[in-house]
Design a protein around this nucleic acid. Structure first.
Lengths: 140, 140
DNA sequence: ATTTCAATCTGTAATGAGTTCAATTACATA
DNA sequence: TATGTAATTGAACTCATTACAGATTGAAAT
């Protein structure tokens, strides 16, 4: 088990190196968290989750790493929640649904090409998001 | 001119009354601003714009009024900008483009039915938004 | 090994949007 | 005019995020 974890972390190390990112322990742990938890976490959620493994961890470091990962195209920055930024491990384009009651964000598998445009009305598109808000299945 | 303004403000008064909203001077002024400025303003923008006409105006009042207007379906709450909430006078469904350079938000006239769904994957939809971010025509 | 240097990390302080709350004001009705 | 409810005000507060300066790391050079 320890060996298996070590192997997984080494894999992440290689992934980061291949993207020209120095694989610090903190970056590896954030990447590992994002890869294994598709819960659209906030900075605070990630901090609480991994600070146990890194006693000296600073929240500022999580901010730095996520901004850096966003610039490198590893995570997507979701502004669907007006209280705090949420982050998403980048995969195939999809929409999001945020519950106004419980705050959870769900992936929505939507057939739509709006996320694939390069330009809209003359403006250069870098990010595209389709966001729904309401009451989720569980809270209904 | 003074008479014409007075007529316009009286029209707004009637609109608010018809929606079961007590037409205070502050509410009339915020409604008037939103109707005439389609620039997706923040609370601060509106405050700066109309506080000249209402010397005692408090920013808390703008927050109260906009939240109330949102509940009444008069304005739409845009969370596209992670720094501050922006507000949109509700009209026919459309998408938005926000420029990462100048911060301006543009209306995008998009043929898409994603905004018209009542349910997605079992979740009850109350709001739907299609947001683009990038570099606007002017900043390119 | 030691030095060097840049990149990264850390923690504190500052910023600023948004909320809370108690006191004041406005307004409709009796 | 009196009364009660709703709306407004402003100060204090919360809390996510940023700024910044000092400490640490790690790789390359000597």
């Amino acid at each position: 088990m320890v060996n298996k974890n070590k192997t997984l972390l080494n894999e992440i190390k290689e992934i980061l190196k291949s993207k020209d990112i120095k694989p610090s322990y903190q970056r590896i742990m954030v990447y590992n968290y994002m890869k294994n938890h598709r819960n659209h976490p906030s900075v605070d959620t990630i901090f609480k989750a991994i600070s146990g493994s890194i006693p000296t961890l600073s929240k500022t470091t999580i901010y730095n790493i996520l901004n850096f990962f966003a610039k490198k195209g590893i995570v997507d920055t979701l502004t669907i929640d007006k209280n705090e930024v949420r982050y998403d491990f980048i995969k195939t384009p999809h929409a999001h649904f945020m519950c106004k009651i419980c705050g959870e964000i769900f992936d929505i598998h939507l057939k739509s090409d709006v996320c694939l445009k390069d330009f809209v009305e003359g403006h250069k598109v870098e990010d595209a998001h389709v966001d729904f808000k309401g009451v989720c299945k569980g809270c209904l």
